[in-house]
Every structure is written in structure tokens, then in C-alpha cells.
Design a binder for these strands. Structure first.
Lengths: 345, 345
DNA sequence: GTGAAAGCGCTAACAG
DNA sequence: CTGTTAGCGCTTTCAC
């Protein structure tokens, strides 16, 4: 904290010969007539002279509002390394800046016996929370989280991977539509044996993608073969095993792969490099993910881009609306995705 | 904020039939004998039953301590996209977690008329600041920042690019040593015409790198030719111009390049790809930077790796020490770097 | 228009 | 050991 001898409202009040209330009003409510113009001038001048800066902590306690939003990202890995999160965060920050809020990134499991994560959530430091679901969030996890937050009456907005029915502030993409679009795109290019490389079958996004793929495949009399759905558990060895299974057998070898996220795409690139597999010669690759991390991948991957930055912006927007206008009903927004043509298809 | 009907110390005190002070002590000072064991038990039980969670805001106001640290990153671009910052942040978070602090990422220039950045810095929301200097910080900027912070008596720790003499908490690398090591490495491999691709000559890191390079070159009777120092201003076009200048003229063409950071390295890769330049065949490349973003660059760049994560950890450590133990003298730490052999040299 | 006073919820010094 | 009291600095009734 700053030097504790900082000037307070009291100090200004004394110097100006007015009440502390007058100072508070003069400084904060520029509209109000409760203080006369001349008085206000004098107060403002003195505050300026003394270098007054309000103590936001005291203000927050009195107003019951901190203008601080918390960020929750259930992920083991350092969250800042993750490009998806980095983009969402940038979007969030951009909105917060516009609307005068700040972001509190808390450190889960702080000192033993104090400030555990859940305590922090409820500790009144934040006006609300932004939740970014990650690949470690199953549908059940998400559901439980929502129930807890509702019970604690904490305002929040969620990003990514919620397909439940609870009325919450949510921003995501329609993964079923993405799966469907992926199949449309690939079948139009003559692919019939399409594989799906995913992290885990328990993830909501996985389920939606599969659903969408099936929908589109069936429309064409094709099917998504169970053996062409591979779940790596986000382990490289497992990814390589799966890919070996697919490519070592000549029969029924897939001609195209949809990767469920950037990390799986990178695994695939590593595999292709190591095994001498050419893209798109030996295998066509389509990715669902962000575009940033791929700038320097060669060949450039064809990607169904999720608008992650925008998701962050919007989620923050919804959250702040629901904080500032208490009546506002929760909104669920599904953002459109975009196909960015690369050299892997 | 959370539901405002949350139980307070008063509520527990009433229910337990004790004073509010007793409750506070029972809950917070497990060591103290000021409250008897049985009473403590009773109080703890009741607090548990009522689902008591302390209001950190009120606590902070009374204790004059928030356990919140602020992050300042002077950079126009979205800071979370930057791998250097992502790594430093991860390090910072890791320390904060261990020591029970949280991180406040504020949004510069909030609502007009209120909460400008500087005000937030002094608004008592934070116990201290972590400053990450970036490529937009000249020596003068940094110096001014330090003066301001000192004047406002704000505790802080700085990361990166400070070579001044002020006694502050600082963690960085010795860029002169890096420049020197780069030259040693390249000359040992027979290179004599070594170029330096940098962002701007006004950056402290630039100056140190040049100093180190010169030192090592002169020891060998070589020199760093002024025309082989290129400053891109972090603009791609300018980078290409400079590289064209170097490579279009056959005479005095450099045989090796040291890039001052990851972004310049990427510019160089783009250039090499576009002009059909082979690394290391046509040009040897050595980079100063992080290793993460390069995982999927081909060929893999040889890199003098700065331990950015560790820098974040340590800076946070120093800052918290200086907050918690007021007498602690500021420390300046220069971390060692490491050479990671790639395929570009 | 203006000021006094009552909180916001907690900590800590002080008196028993 | 225990309770009372005085803040922390600000906002906001509520009388005048």
C-alpha cells in the first residue's frame, strides 16, 4: 500500500472549512446541486493542491462495489501460456477498460488455512467473475460450478463449452455447427473417411463436434467410424499411438482429420514431421481453434476459427451489464466461426 | 459482490454469546491464548455452521493491507499475446500462489474522470506493483517511472531492461554478457561478419547487447560494423528493407545474425521464407529470447534463452519480501542465460 | 444548500 | 482470558 500519510477527505474538509460530506459530493457527484458552485470550485482546487486520490478500498467498503472482476480458469497448466486463454483475456481486458473495471487473477489455493479459492470467490473483493471453461471441464464440472455460484449469489459470465440449459450469461460457439461445417468442407473435396482427433470424449465440445459431424455425414450416407475417433487425453504418446493405428493400417486409412483444438493440431504436426507424413498429400488436415499460434506453422493449417477475443469481450460485457443493471436477464450468445483456408486441405 | 446478507463477525458473536473481538481472534489468530480453547471451539463451530466467510475488503481497510499486487506492463499490444510476458506472468502467479497474494491486472485509462491508471496505482488497492519493462521502455522512461514510484512510496519490483543505478528490486539478465556470448559462439564457428537485428537503438537491452558484442569482437580484432546494426522499429517493412540491404549486396554480406528478441526472429524467418534464404546455409541465426514460441519453428532456432519464468518468480519474491519485512534492502538480481542449440547455426 | 452522524465489516489497542 | 472502544476512509441518509 501507499504511504499512509495520504490526504483524506477529512483533510480537505478541514482545509476548505466545510464538512466531509460536502467534499465527497463535490468530488464525486458533478451533477448534484447539493453543494454550491463556488464551494465546489474551492474544494476541487484544494483537493488538487493536496494531491488527493480517493482510497478505493474505503469507497468499495461503503459502496459495496469494487469494480473488480475475478477471473477463473480451471486449468493445471500455467494459464497464460495458452493462446486460447490469452485471446479471451485480451478481449475481457478490452471491455473492462472501456467500462472502468479491473481484473483480479487469483491464485488458487493460497496460504493454507486462509484464502482458499472458494473463500476468495466469496470474499467480497470482486463484483463478479468471468469463467473460462477449458479442456479440463466436463459437463458435470460446469454444471456444479454454476449451481455453486448461483447458490452463493455471485454474478458471473461463462466462456466456452456450456451446452446445458441453465439461464446464465454465456458466450461460446456452436460446436455442432463447426463439426458439421468441417464435414461439409471435407466431403465436398472428396473425402469419405474422416477421422476426428480429440482430447477426451467427456468434453462438451467433443460431444457437440461429433454430433455435428454425424449429422452431416449421415446426410450423405456416410458415417463417423468409432475407430476413427481418437482421444489422446492430451498426452503426446497416446496421440502418436492413435495416429499410428490410423496410418499403419493401409485399409480404412483416413484421408482427412479434424483436430478438436490447437494442441491436438500441434501433436499432429509433430507426428507428421517425425513419420514423414505430408499434408495435404498423405492426409488432409482441418483444425478447430485459434489462428494466432499457427502463424508460423508450415504448411499453414486450414482452420475453423473460433472468435475467442470477441468471446472475451462479450462475456465481460454481459457480466458488467448484469452487475450494473440488476434486472437484466442472463444472455446466451453463440458466435459465428470462420473458415480460414490454409495449405493443409 | 456476493449476497449482502452474508453472516458477519457480529452475527457469530451474538450467536456464540461472546464479543466480536473474541470471534475475530478465535478465527484468525490460532496461536493466541486470548481466547480459551473451549470458546474457540464453539466459535469455530458456529462460524462453520453459518458459512462465515470473512469480508476481505473490510479486513483490508482495517489492516491496511490487501494482499493484492498490481501488474504494470507498458505495451500497446494486448499483453497476453506476448510470450515473454506470458512466461513472466506465470512465474509471478506461481510465487503469489505460494505466498497467498493475488494479482490485479488493471486496465489503463478507465472511465474518463475517474480511475485513471496513475490514480489506481495510488488508490490503495494494491500492496505493491510488479513492473515488466517491454520494448517500448527507454532508459529514460524507466528512470522516470522509478522516480514516480519512489515519490509515491509505492513498493515495487521490476523485471527486465534496467541498467541504471537506483537501488530497486530488480530481476533481469546481463544483456552485455549475452551479446558477448553470442559473438563468442559465432566467431568460434568461423563467422567474422556478424549482424545485429534489433528493434530500436534507444532500448537498454539493445545498448547492452551491442556493448557486449563489441567487447568480444574487439578481443578478436574484429568489429561490429555500423551498417550491420539494423533497427526495425518493430515494423515488418523496415525489417525487410534492412535484411534486403544486407543480403542484396554480395560484398560484406553478413554470415551470421543475432536477433535481439523473438519478434525480430520471426520477422527474419518470414523474410527467409519469402526470399528463399536457407538457415544456416545462407545465413547463421542466433536468437536472444524465450524458447516456447519457437517449438514449432523450422529449422529450430539456436537461442540464448532468457529465464523469463524464473524472472517473474523472483521479482514477485523480492516484492513480497520488501512488503512483509519492511527493513529489507532492495535487491538486484541478474539471472544466468542458457544456450539452446538449434539447427540455424 | 449544508453538516452531523450512522454505517460498511473488520482489526487492534486498551481496559478490566 | 475477555469485552469495550476507537478507528480504517468513504458514502449516504437525515435533520437543519
Amino acid at each position: 500500500m501507499r504511504n499512509s500519510s495520504a490526504p483524506r477527505l477529512t483533510d480537505i474538509a478541514k482545509r476548505a472549512g466545510v464538512s466531509i460530506a460536502a467534499v465527497s459530493i463535490a468530488l464525486n457527484k458533478s451533477e448534484s446541486n447539493r453543494v454550491s458552485a463556488e464551494r465546489r470550485q474551492k474544494i476541487l482546487r484544494i483537493a488538487e493542491e493536496m494531491g488527493y486520490v480517493p482510497n478505493e478500498l474505503a469507497r468499495a467498503l461503503a459502496e459495496r462495489r469494487t469494480r473488480l472482476l475475478g477471473l477463473v480458469v480451471p486449468l493445471r497448466d500455467p494459464i497464460f501460456f495458452n493462446q486460447f486463454i490469452a485471446q479471451a483475456l485480451s478481449g475481457i481486458q478490452s471491455t473492462l477498460m472501456k467500462r472502468g473495471y479491473n481484473l483480479l487473477v487469483f491464485s488458487p489455493s493460497g496460504k493454507p488455512g486462509r484464502a482458499t479459492r472458494d473463500q476468495i470467490l466469496e470474499s467480497r473483493f470482486m463484483d463478479g467473475l468471468v469463467f473460462i471453461n477449458t479442456r479440463s471441464c466436463t459437463a458435470g464440472d460446469v454444471k456444479r460450478t454454476i449451481e455453486e455460484l448461483d447458490r452463493a449469489q455471485i454474478k458471473f459470465a461463462m466462456i466456452n463449452s456450456y451446452y446445458g440449459r441453465a439461464p446464465i450469461n454465456y458466450v461460446g460457439v456452436d460446436d455442432a455447427a463447426i463439426g458439421s461445417a468441417a464435414v461439409d468442407y471435407l466431403t465436398e473435396r472428396g473425402h469419405k473417411r474422416i477421422a476426428f482427433l480429440s482430447g477426451s470424449a467427456t468434453l462438451p465440445a467433443h460431444q457437440q463436434l461429433v454430433k455435428g459431424m454425424r449429422r452431416s455425414l449421415e446426410k450423405r450416407g456416410l458415417e463417423l467410424k468409432p475407430e476413427l475417433i481418437g482421444c489422446t487425453g492430451y498426452e503426446v504418446e497416446r496421440a502418436f499411438q492413435i495416429l499410428d493405428d490410423w496410418f499403419r493400417t493401409k485399409r480404412d486409412r483416413p484421408t482427412a482429420i479434424l483436430t478438436a483444438d490447437d494442441q491436438l493440431l500441434l501433436n499432429l504436426y509433430d507426428y507428421a514431421e517425425q513419420r514423414g507424413l505430408k499434408m495435404p498429400g498423405d492426409i488432409a488436415v482441418l483444425n478447430r481453434g485459434n489462428s494466432t499460434p499457427e502463424h508460423h506453422l508450415r504448411p499453414r493449417p486450414t482452420t475453423l476459427v473460433t472468435p475467442t477475443l470477441r468471446m472475451g469481450e462479450l462475456a465481460a460485457e454481459l457480466l458488467i451489464d448484469s452487475i450494473e443493471k440488476p434486472g437484466t436477464p442472463p444472455q446466451r450468445v453463440l458466435l459465428p466461426f470462420e473458415l480460414v483456408q490454409g495449405a493443409t486441405t
